[in-house]
Amino acid sequence: MNDLIAALTVARKDFRQELRSRATTVATLFFSAITLVMMAFGLGRDPELMRSAAPGVLWVALAFAGVIAAAQSFQADLEEGAFEQLLLLPVSRAAVYLGKLAASWLYLFVLGALMLPIALGLYGADAPASTWWLLGLVLLLGTLGLALIATFYAGLTANLQAREALLPVLMFPVIVPIMLGAVRATEAALMGSADAPLALSWVQLLGGFDLVYLVVCASIFHFVVDD
């Protein structure tokens, strides 16, 4: 069985389930929007403070959304022993992980693309047209990093009773490099073309961590889902 085809099959299944339940969409969309609004209230009326906080608030909102999306993805599978049945098929654990990762990543990326303009508008920040491509790249790699870790730890905690509490506790320390890279790269991209080289150096860091996490998580996912 070609692992790539198997991964795409699993991803398609996750998409199909989400399109039908819309549980993750509703939860993450409202949660992210509310986080952005609440943080705006909390930061006060200083326009400069608001502008500088925009990248950080955006990525914190996406990180929490990543937790919700990944946990929900496994929760839907665990009902009635369906995930166990999936694992009984002769399909590699790496393919299962990559499939669920692909679904979570695309979902988070679309969510990020929706939240980015809202965050910029709400916090009075401006994104120069010359660096839109850079913001897109940061969003792509940043959401990949979040999805990589969230999917892995959601699988690890899926069968635990305290999974809702454990997932963020386990996940957030590990995503620090991703958050750092994504926030700094977004800040630099919002400064315009002059800071594009700085943004690109953070993007390289993001890409590097993504690659490491991808290889490690896919390689050891069988320890997570098998006895």
């Binding site: 069985m1 085809i5 198997a6 099959t9 699993v10 299944k13 199909r16 389930q17 039908r20 339940s21 839907a76 599978d77 009902e79 009635e80 022993g81 369906a82 166990e84 049945q85 999936l86 009984l88 098929l89 002769p90 399909v91």
Partner: peptide
């Protein structure tokens, strides 16, 4: 419990199994 995905149809559950086997 049968072990099928509740948010897929019966046919989709079987198609998934055959696609992965």
């Amino acid at each position: 419990m049968g072990g099928s995905f509740p948010l897929l149809t019966g046919r989709e559950n079987l198609e998934l199994a055959t696609a992965l086997t």
